[in-house]
Design a protein around this nucleic acid. Sequence first.
DNA 1: TGAACATATGAGCAGATGTTCATATGTCAT
DNA 2: ATGACATATGAACATCTGCTCATATGTTCA
Lengths: 136, 136
Amino acid sequence: MIPPAPVGTPAAPDSDRCDVRHADPTRLAARRASLLPADAVVSLAETFKLLGDATRVRILDALSHGELCVCEIAALVDLSESAVSHQLRLLRGLRLVRPRRAGRLAYYTLDDQHIMSLFQQGLRHVQEPGNVESTS
Amino acid sequence: MIPPAPVGTPAAPDSDRCDVRHADPTRLAARRASLLPADAVVSLAETFKLLGDATRVRILDALSHGELCVCEIAALVDLSESAVSHQLRLLRGLRLVRPRRAGRLAYYTLDDQHIMSLFQQGLRHVQEPGNVESTS
DNA sequence: TGAACATATGAGCAGATGTTCATATGTCAT
DNA sequence: ATGACATATGAACATCTGCTCATATGTTCA
């Protein structure tokens, strides 16, 4: 994994790199202590990653006004029912949606109200002046 | 792109699919009208996608306590400065961070306070009982 | 000026992601 | 039971992503 030690590097015993030169280590140590724990970071990233796809955003947005069955969602987001089902599986995995079976239909609902707050907050960022593609 | 029209489908004139059968079209039409506009969906997804990576979450988290130069960030997230620089470029692209040059150093700051609200909100979801991997 | 340094960026590559296709499971109507 | 239907899922495949390596740009100091 590790490439053949770069020539001319006389065994630096520090795990860090440039901070030992121009920054004071104490500052970094303090910063390091206030970082989010690793598992929180991973969970957070997993959640955001799931929201980071236009198809899934559309699905969640569609569900925000009430439950829908799979084929209704497929019609609304204009995608195959198979593709939608795959995405719903992912969303189910992180408990963002919840199914309710009614005969052969499966109605899905948002399972967490936080998600809509997240959307609102996200839209607020997007609509911030200057944060859109069409920056003049 | 479109596969050879499925045999036995007698020219359905509807753009939808199964809703014309078991759901009333009016309901779907209403839903369709209340969907987010396409560009909002895309912007939203782009933003969340950027937040959907553990490395970038760590970078933003590190910056949440104040500005840091590239090599300090690299030290904190334990990654090469090149990798960090690449990620910072993406974050800059969506105006999530902003650089300040000081000689040969580049200090980065969070450029949008909404981001931290997004993190808080996201953490609230993650910490929801039952939304963690360690579900008993 | 030239060497060391901090950062930026392009190419390349391994691994992840999202869709389609085929097929499986379970439900309803006949 | 049988066929039509709604959904779920696995495999395959093209695309995207994030890292590393090499290299370019711009700064500081001698």
